[in-house]
Each structure stands twice: as C-alpha cells, then as structure tokens.
Amino acid sequence: MRFIKLMTHKVLKVIIIFIVLCLSNFSLKSQQHFRISSDFSIKEVDESGVKKLTIGRLYYDLNNTKLVLNITFPEQEILIFEDSSIFRIVDNKVVERNTLMEGFITNTFYHLLLSNQLSDYGLKDSKFYHKTDMEMVSNQIISEWQPSGGLENITGKIMTLNENKLLRAINFYDKEGRLIYKQNFNSYEYFSSLQFPSEVIQQYFPKTKDGITELTKKYSYKNIILNEVSNENFYNYRIPIN
C-alpha cells in the first residue's frame, strides 16, 4: 500500500514537471516577435541650422523582411523596402525606384530589434566584423569590432557601448580611424519582453568641400504595436504595377 502511494506521488511529480516544462516552452515561444509597427518622426538639423522633418508610421515584418513607411509629412507617400529595392509610391503609383545596398533590410534597426540582435548590432553573427577588444567601465561594456573578410581596406572599426545587456551607443570609424558616424539609443521602454529604445539619435560627420561638417538626426517612436495581425495591407504591401 505504501509502495503504491509512493509511486503515485512520483508519477504526479513527473506530470507536474511535464506541465511546467510545456508551459515554459509556450511562454518562451510567445516572446518571439515577428512584427512591429510604430509612429515615427525624424528630426534633422545640420550645422547651418537648416531643418527637415519626416513623420509617418512604419510597419516591419520579420518573416518577409519587408519594411513599409507610410509617410504623412512632408508629403503623403509610401516607401517600401523589399529585397534589394526601395519603391516610392504616390497615389498608388510607383514614382521612383532605387537599388538598396546588400543586406540593407537585415541591418535595419527594426530587423535587429525583432531578431534579438540589437544588443551587438548584429556584429556577433556578421561575417565582416570580429570582436577584438572588450572593456568593463563601471557597469558598462565597451567592445571594439574590427573589419575582416575583405572589408579591411574599405572601412574601419566599430565600437559598441552596452549597459545591462542593452545597446546604448555605437560609433563607426573609417579606415584611417576618423569618426564618421555615431548613434545613441535612449529611453528604452519595455513591451512584452522586448526592450525598445523610443529615441535614437544619430550624428554624421561627412567630409565636404568646406571641411568636416555635422548632421544630427533624432528618431522618435511612439504607439508601438508588436505582432500585429491587422493592417495586413501594409505588412504585405503590394507594389502597384504602373
């Protein structure tokens, strides 16, 4: 009788463990994100004080790697980033088409965010960069990434700054070691297991005929929706045939 009781207890234990494992697996699966949409604005100021403003809503689907920007300002238009092309659509007509650089979409902030690669900006899995240095400064980690795979003669190092596993900043240098581009990721917000920086500031230092200038852009995001099942017409936007 005691043996039967013991066995029943053990069987119950196994069943409980099995249920817990199944539930934890389910909860892990539910943390995978495949779509993001957000209102965005891009504020741009150059050294001479000239400003640009772009407002709209973005839709990104990780599975079909398609980024759609529904722009409302300066003018009503739609930009679609798909495969190796970008299409500009006005009044349901393609008015402009350009070629994208290789890997443009999979290197966008939105792709890196949904594929959980933002913390190292996708550099860990990149065939063109490898980590060469790492340093802990108080609670922040500075990493240095050097180009490889034929990129050594074209571009320079990349430095990343992380705090509590979150990417706080990234700096890009040219092959001579000159800083060409900086990016800061601010105001992280928590959305169902995803840490989203609702403000991204970029600063460029392009070489012009007047010397090195400065261009600063501020990206702001709000009304963020993850794994949206509506707005299918944007996520799978059909490029019109003119």
């Binding site: 100021v45 400003k51 403003l53 430095m159 700054l161 900086k182 500031i201 501020k218």
Partner: peptide, 27 residues
C-alpha cells in the same frame, strides 16, 4: 584604458536643443 572611453560615444545635442524643440512643436 587609453583607447576606449565612454565619453567618445555620447552625442551632445545641446547646440541643437532649440531646433529640435521647434521641430517638435511643428510635428
């Protein structure tokens, strides 16, 4: 320690704060 510094990463927007505020109002 000599090659890397946290300060190298910071973007100062102090010079552009007014411009960004104006753009926010316009937005």
């Amino acid at each position: 320690a000599t090659a890397l510094s946290v300060e190298d990463f910071k973007i100062s927007t102090t010079d552009y704060e007014q411009a960004f505020e104006e753009l926010s109002t316009l937005e």
